[in-house]
């Protein structure tokens, strides 16, 4: 069953064509990697999916678990189970990590018709998940992303993903700014969340992340469309020959 379906998506940003008829189908239980050079439209794709203002489709359709996203605002999409791990997580001065997490989780639970967690139950759950991600209590007390290191920011993103239990997660350049140790922790966190009921789309420049989060499918994005799809071996080909060879061949 297809959890995420993108059909012939076209989109302009500042009057420039960025997505030029992109199609992609992601089934539950699958991990897809989207690779592409700078400027190929990777971040635009993630903003379009998440419903950021200014990234509305010009034509084409997107479905999340069979439901069209075109009339849904960013927050509705999130509550419906779409998660975006940001390339550059945003600082929220004065907003405590724990209370931010709680608001987010309760919004999702409310949407699902589940009871909102009270403070104690929530803190217990959050601590449990956080410890797996090597996120210390002290970090949850700090303001969201303020003064976090690159690794801490990404760990906090994945912690949120784990708490929100989304249907579809999009990881936008999650490997950027991570050293090898941090990359491993973050990848372990992601892998732990792979189930038969959800799907993950990993957007990345480099093959190295895919050594840790092994995808079922790899797609090459170039100039706003997917020019080639294949298995994990496609990523190795990129690593070996660069994007240029693939793009020229296409």
């Amino acid at each position: 069953m297809s959890l995420l379906e993108i059909k012939n998506a076209k989109l302009k940003v500042d009057n420039k064509d960025i997505l030029k008829g992109l199609s992609l189908s992601v089934n539950s239980g699958e991990v897809h990697a989207i690779m592409g050079p700078n400027g190929s439209g990777k971040s635009t794709l993630s903003y379009m999916l998440a419903g950021r203002d200014g990234y509305e489709l010009e034509s084409g359709k997107v479905f999340l678990d069979g439901q069209s996203l075109s009339d849904m605002e960013a927050d509705e999409r999130a509550r419906s189970g779409l998660f975006l791990a940001f390339q550059y997580p945003v600082e929220l001065p004065g907003v405590g990590g724990m209370s931010f997490l709680r608001e987010a989780v309760n919004s999702r639970r409310k949407f699902l018709g589940e009871e909102e967690l009270d403070h104690l139950a929530f803190v217990k759950e959050a601590r449990k998940v956080a410890s797996k991600m090597f996120v210390k209590d002290e970090m949850l007390k700090r303001a969201v992303n303020v003064g976090f290191s690159g690794g801490e920011k990404k760990r906090f993103e994945i912690l949120q993903m784990a708490m929100l239990k989304p249907k579809v997660s999009i990881l936008d350049e999650t490997d950027s700014g991570l050293d090898v140790d941090a990359l491993k922790i973050v990848s372990d966190g992601v892998n732990e969340q792979r189930t038969n009921d959800n799907a993950i789309v990993v957007i990345t420049h480099y093959q190295r992340l895919l050594d840790y989060i092994v995808p079922d499918f790899v797609h090459i994005l170039s100039d706003g469309i997917i020019i080639k799809s294949g298995g994990p071996e496609l990523a190795l080909e990129v690593e070996k020959n660069g994007y240029a060879g693939l793009i020229n061949a296409a």
């Binding site: 927050d75 509550r79 600082e91």
Partner: peptide, 18 residues
């Protein structure tokens, strides 16, 4: 900041308030 909060499922008013 707003988009980050919305992406976590908070509505605009919740986000502003936060």
């Amino acid at each position: 900041q707003l988009f980050y909060c919305l992406q976590r499922g908070l509505d605009t008013e919740q986000a502003t308030s936060l």
